[in-house]
């Protein structure tokens, strides 16, 4: 992450490196530094309009824009995949405004911006994981007043988080919250990990990589520095449990990874495959095969191409 900065000329328009002007980037970096200094604390920042709708992850984009440098290699994922419309558009945005290299390989990336997933591959100290966050405030579910939630964070009044989990157990017999599952960061701040599945929560704990969270519409940045304790909230008699999948990935055979259900045809045939598509490809390249042998979707592709 170097700071250099040449103006880029994109489609006739003149942008600064990574779109934002230097002053804005400095302001965002200050917010990030504050976030790192107070793990889990939501730092307000003067979010800028970005040339994309809020739902596209403008908070994450601004964080990435503030930390990215010429020598970075960027990976952009959406639901674990590098090639959804959203991931492609955001990756192109950075390619156009920075000219940095991009990759789909988790281990080759120095910055990974994500919506919904943490890669399966263990991240390292040389990497930064940037989350796109829609709703940063974990207490909002029961306390809509911003003045009040701020006070609750300041005074560590977190009983309400357990009220929410209590309601889950009362209604469903277990803690049914499966996404945005609240965590306690370094024993101090309760944090919403954004809409990642709770399956990914344990990866946040003691992660070697720096984790940065940006919420554009809500104008908040927060952070988990490397080697920070991140504990999922629970009850003594209803401990936090990671989602378990009954079968391994159908095409690479991976176990203990997060799987997506894929509908194969109109007859209701379906398969469960790695949500992290790069991880799945790596395994297949290394010779691992799942029950379905090859990826039926690849077969489709080949026939289409042939036609």
């Amino acid at each position: 992450m170097t700071n250099l900065i040449e103006a880029q000329d994109i489609s006739g328009e003149h942008y600064n490196f990574a779109y934002l002007d230097e002053q804005t980037k400095r302001m965002i970096r200050r917010a990030i530094l504050k976030g790192i200094a107070i793990p889990g604390y939501q730092v307000p920042f003067a979010a800028r309009e970005m040339p994309m709708p809020y739902g596209w992850g403008t908070g994450g984009v601004q964080v990435t824009a503030a930390v990215i440098g010429k020598d970075d290699c960027l990976k952009m994922i959406d639901q674990g995949s590098d090639d959804t419309t959203n991931a492609v558009a955001l990756r192109n945005f950075f390619v156009e405004t920075t000219g940095v290299g991009t990759t789909t390989k988790t281990k080759d990336a120095s910055i990974i911006q994500t919506r919904h997933r943490i890669p399966e591959e263990t991240l390292t100290k040389d990497q930064v994981l940037v989350y796109q966050v829609p709703i940063p405030e974990p207490l909002r579910f029961l306390e809509p007043r911003e003045t009040e939630t701020r006070k609750m964070h300041a005074l560590e009044e977190y009983g309400l988080m357990h009220v929410k989990l209590y309601e889950d157990i009362a209604k469903f017999g277990h803690i049914a919250t499966a996404y945005a599952y609240p965590v306690m960061v370094q024993g101090r701040y309760v944090m919403d990990p954004s809409p990642t599945p709770k399956f990914d929560n344990p990866k946040m704990d003691q992660m070697e990589a720096l984790q940065l969270f940006g919420a554009g519409r809500e104008k908040r940045i927060y952070a988990i520095p490397p080697h920070t304790n991140v504990v999922s909230l629970d009850f003594e008699d209803h401990p936090f449990e990671v989602t378990k999948f009954e079968q391994p990935c159908a095409i690479c055979g991976a176990e203990n990874v997060y799987l997506d259900e894929v509908i194969l045809d109109n007859d209701g045939n379906r398969m469960f495959v790695c949500s992290d598509s790069d991880f799945c490809e790596d395994r297949r390249a290394a010779g691992h095969v799942g029950l379905l042998g090859t990826n039926p979707l690849d077969a489709d592709k080949t026939t289409e191409e042939a036609e």
């Binding site: 029961l142 009044e157 009983g159 309400l160 357990h162 009220v163 209590y166 309601e167 157990i169 009362a170 209604k171 009850f235 003594e236 008699d237 209803h238």
Partner: peptide, 27 residues
Amino acid sequence: LRMTVSAGANVGERLMAVGARHYGNIR
């Protein structure tokens, strides 16, 4: 009251606020 959470959670809230973390006991 918290009108959108159950009667049990309404009563249990203060217990959780002072650190009760055993669902069965709270209930």
